Simulated scan of single mutants.
Amino acid sequence: MTTRWLNPDEMRAWRAYISAVFLLEDTLDRQLQQDAGMPHLYYSILANLSEEPERQLRMTDLAERTKITRSRLTYAVTRLEKDGLVRREQCRWDKRGSIAALTDEGLAILERIAPGHVETVRSAVFDQLTPEQVGQLEEISRRIAGALEGQQGGGEDVPWRRRSSGAGCEG
Rank of each mutant, 00 (worst) to 15 (best):
S50M: 08
G84D: 12
V21D: 11
L28G: 03
D61F: 07
Y17F: 03
D157M: 12
M59E: 05
T120M: 06
D35Q: 15
E10W: 07
T130C: 07
G135T: 10
L102Q: 06
P159F: 04
A36K: 06
P131F: 08
D29A: 06
E81S: 15
D94H: 14
Q33N: 11
L110T: 00
S123H: 07
T3G: 03
G116N: 12
G106Q: 05
A20H: 05
R112N: 11
E25R: 11
R87G: 02
L62K: 08
E132A: 14
W93D: 11
R143N: 11
A167L: 02
G37N: 02
L85M: 05
A147E: 12
S44N: 14
V134D: 09
E132M: 09
G153N: 05
T74P: 00
S164C: 02
F22G: 00
E170R: 07
M11K: 12
G166V: 09
L107E: 15
D127K: 03
R122I: 10
L6H: 07
E54W: 02
F22H: 10
E138C: 04
F22S: 09
G84A: 02
Q90R: 09
P53N: 05
E89W: 05
Q56G: 06
Y75H: 12
L73C: 06
I109S: 08
G146H: 09
W160K: 00
G168Y: 03
S71A: 13
E139P: 00
R112F: 02
A101Y: 03
D35G: 00
A76Q: 14
E132L: 11
G135E: 15
E89S: 07
G154H: 04
R72F: 03
G150N: 12
S44L: 14
T3I: 13
T78E: 15
P8D: 13
T60N: 13
G155D: 13
G97N: 08
R143D: 10
G168T: 14
A167D: 13
R87M: 05
E170G: 07
A13W: 08
D61S: 09
E64L: 13
R58S: 09
Q136R: 13
V86C: 01
Y43M: 07
L41T: 11
K67E: 11
D127S: 07
E105R: 14
S164W: 04
G153D: 04
C169R: 13
D83T: 03
A63R: 01
R162W: 03
Q31D: 15
E89D: 14
H117C: 01
L129R: 09
S165C: 04
I109V: 14
E149A: 03
H117Y: 13
R112H: 03
